[in-house]
């Protein structure tokens, strides 16, 4: 099989690390070679964070190149715009309809770009916008945004739903399992 590339982008503290753990687990369960690379040195400090997951017959580089991502999952709108040029032609992007102002906007040095979704749609043919914060709130915790978004990603990927649920069971602590299974369902059924 051709190597499949997934890029997760967001803001430090949004839970991209758990999401990438689940994603890596589900990829490994398919019997693929998997590589995953994360930059998380200052992830709790509200900076821009990126996780790259690659799976295929044999994967060498852990890095996804510009124009090579099959899927992008953006936990925040501006981050979607920052990384949309990584999407390959015909690739799909799942974007959380949430705005988190970076400090450069808070201080007034820059303006948060208007009409982010329109700009994304100009650049990608398949944009799935999802209010993950609201869906997470409905299942009981705004911290479950990450797994809601994985549910939405699952709609765009050729992996069985049961595999995803199993990956969540293997990754998430028992205490939070029910919440996260519901969060996945919320994102999966939209």
């Amino acid at each position: 099989m051709k190597t499949h590339n997934i890029l997760l982008v967001g803001v430090g503290g949004q839970g991209t690390i758990l999401a990438s753990k689940i994603l890596a687990e589900v990829a490994t369960m398919q019997g693929h070679d998997v590589k995953m690379s994360e930059i998380h040195g200052m992830a709790q400090r509200g900076g821009s964070v990126v996780t790259q997951v690659r799976m295929g017959e044999k994967v060498y580089s852990p890095l996804i190149e510009e124009g090579d991502a099959d899927n992008i999952v953006a936990f925040e709108k501006l981050e979607a715009l920052r990384y949309v040029h990584y999407l390959r032609e015909g690739g799909s992007i799942v974007v959380n309809d949430q705005q988190i102002d970076p400090m450069t906007v808070i201080t007034g040095a820059h303006v948060y770009p208007p009409e982010v979704m329109e700009k994304l749609q100009e650049r990608a043919s398949d944009v799935l916008v999802i209010d993950a914060l609201q869906l997470a709130r409905e299942v009981g915790s705004i911290r479950a945004v990450n797994v809601v978004l994985l549910g939405a990603l699952a709609r765009k990927m050729d992996i069985t739903k049961e595999s995803w649920l199993e990956a969540i069971r293997r990754t998430v602590p028992a205490k939070f399992l029910a919440l996260n299974l519901q969060a996945f369902e919320a994102g999966y059924s939209g």
Binding site: Q44, R45, E66, L81, R82, P102, M103, K119
Partner: peptide, 16 residues
């Protein structure tokens, strides 16, 4: 070095 598709404001890490 990485040409940005958009003029997107930077998001440096901040004090929590």
């Amino acid at each position: 070095p990485g040409q940005l598709a958009e003029n997107v404001p930077m998001r440096p890490p901040v004090l929590c």
